[in-house]
Design a protein around this nucleic acid. Structure first.
Lengths: 115, 115
DNA sequence: TGCTTATACATAGGATACCTATGGGTAGAA
DNA sequence: TTCTACCCATAGGTATCCTATGTATAAGCA
């Protein structure tokens, strides 16, 4: 909420996390930095959102994890997509695009028209 | 969840309701039908979501309401935007577009890149 | 006449995903 | 030695959506 960053819209965090892991194993902190970077700071994922989300997504079987060592020599938990998670990512992208297209139609509707 | 309609993404309902009322007073049922129509059935707003949302939005001062009679001769509560609501609509549209643009950047990122 | 459908409003109760706040700990720079 | 960046994690609160259920009327049809 500080400065100009937006609150996350429910449901998009899964999508962002899965995408962040689509290039191979990454640890949680790196995921959060990637989201911040790729959205140019528009989206900030709080740690209190991210770590529970990673656990939640893992429980669903879309990612798995193991302890490792980060580039900076610290202990870190690395997550990677499972095969199910790969499929899920593709599906989440499709759903998201279908959703935003529908909202876009609504928001840009030039006149009231019901049928 | 039936057939192929999508669950609402949290936070977009306000936007859709405000937009639906941007052409003048409408009652709740008409708002739900408009959303269904304009999104070609992709978004279905459940009554258990819509009516509480209308009350919530009214409490925030973005809309006001009064009882009236619908086209079909039934009693219905008509909602309309307040001046604050008009501003809010414009703002919500901007926020939504900024948000979706950010997510789109993330989802279509061709490679991992952080700094 | 009675039945069904579409119209119209509303609430209760539950789920869940996000937030704020807080905590612990390490590596390296200043 | 102090500060910052890195890295993980949980507790508790809140908001917003869902399902399920209830009431009621108008109109069409059998």
């Amino acid at each position: 909420m500080s400065d100009s960053s937006l609150q996350l819209v429910r449901g998009t965090l899964d999508l962002l996390v899965l995408k962040a892991l689509s290039w191979g194993p990454r640890h949680g902190y790196a995921v959060s930095q990637w989201i911040k970077g790729v959205t140019e700071g528009a989206l900030l994922v709080e740690e209190g959102s991210l770590y529970p989300a990673l656990q939640r997504i893992q429980r669903k079987g879309w990612i798995r994890s193991r302890w490792g060592v980060s580039d900076t020599g610290r202990r870190a938990r690395f997550y990677e997509l499972t095969p199910v998670g790969e499929e899920r990512l593709a599906r989440e992208v499709r759903v998201w695009q279908r959703y935003t297209a529908a909202v876009e139609r609504a928001v840009s509707a030039p006149e009231w028209e019901v049928e």
